[in-house]
Amino acid sequence: MRVIALIRPDEWNLPLLMHVLGAMLLVGALMGAATALLSGWRRDARPYTRFAFWMLLAVALPAWLVMRVGAEWIYSKEGFDEDDEPAWLGVGYVTAEPGLLLLLISILLTGIGMRRLRNADPERSSALTRIAAVLALVLLAAYLVAVWAMTAKPV
């Protein structure tokens, strides 16, 4: 099993590169957005929210797509039996698809929060951006579990 993991066919490399690179960019974008939203929790909410919004929309969302396309591409090459897929693959699906939903909600909340801050008190973050900060942290934790499952392949 370990030898199979170490020596994989060459045609799996490009989709794997795409999948891993997309996931790395996604984690980076989520970390930047979460840090910005947490930094603006009590003060200077407007500039931090704007940074987080663009981080999520311009980096995290495209990175998710690259990660997911790479995943589907390599899945098609590996030829898993749909009825007998390994558990680590399931962890990938569980974190990827709901992850997109949470990411889209975070973008929406941060976008609305950014608009509201234009007219409201720019110092204090809104409840919406605070929820987005929590969602970004939840996503980060979920993707850390996914990285563990994808690399260690427990079952």
């Binding site: 690179l21 996931a23 790395m24 960019l25 984690v27 980076g28 974008a29 970390m31 930047g32 840090t35 940074f51 663009w54 981080m55 980096v59 850390l144 990285v147 563990w148 690399t151 260690a152």
Partner: peptide, 19 residues
């Protein structure tokens, strides 16, 4: 896992630095 997680940390930091 620790090797790959370190690589994720490295690239994640670079993404933040670039932004």
């Amino acid at each position: 896992f620790l090797h790959v997680a370190s690589a994720f940390a490295l690239v994640a930091a670079l993404v933040v630095y670039w932004a």
